[in-house]
Amino acid sequence: MTTQQVEGVSAQVGAGPESKSGEAGFITTKLNALLDWGRKNSLWPMPFGTACCAIEMMATLSSRYDLARFGAEVIRFSPRQSDLMIVSGRISIKMMPVLIEIYNQMPEPKWCISMGACASSGGVFDTYTLIQGVDQFIPVDVYIPGCPPRPESLIDAVMLIQQKIARNQRQTKLYDRTRHPLDFEPVALVSNAAEAPATLTGSRHSLPPKDVRTVAEKDEA
């Protein structure tokens, strides 16, 4: 290492930006870590707001709660440009194919927040038409409880996603399920947890099945 005299300040060339010598410095890191650092601080959310939870999401984005502090204020209404799906609201069985399609259009890597009781579990709407939890069909990284969750909860979820990215963690393995839709046999997978593929164990999809009979079978019974 050579030392230089720069206007009376002693600095080491290559000591890093903190030397403040005005000279070029360098830092070392892993490329992956650098990419993750960039991703973590510039999440572009895709808002899938279908109900009241979306109001809280909008509040979170606006100036009072200011999601821009976390680098996630650039709401993208094009899935091609976003990497964080925020499902905020009830999803009906007519909406779910749309959600899946939009989700599939988002480029990798991508993450998903299931915001509120309805998106996570159907909430109070245990009716004939409402999906009881979007995680049955798309992988979810963070669930937010509440009806609706406070903006602080959404901020917390975004921070959890950031931590996940910083740990270089990718999507839950469930993703396979949506990418190869035709290979997936829902009845077989959920009916016997022990035989479920390793990718699905540990998720709630290895729980004992709900009633998975077809409509016709139920009518017979």
Binding site: I93, M96, P97, I100, E101, N104, D126, T127, Y128, T129, L130, I131, Q132, F137, T178, P181, L182, F184, P186, K210, D211, V212, R213, T214, V215, K218, D219
Partner: peptide, 19 residues
């Protein structure tokens, strides 16, 4: 019609609709 449906929300053909 039953309040919670007859399995539509579990059995609708979701996977086949994805390109």
């Amino acid at each position: 019609y039953p309040l919670k449906g007859r399995g539509e929300r579990d059995n609708f053909p979701k996977y086949t609709e994805i390109p």
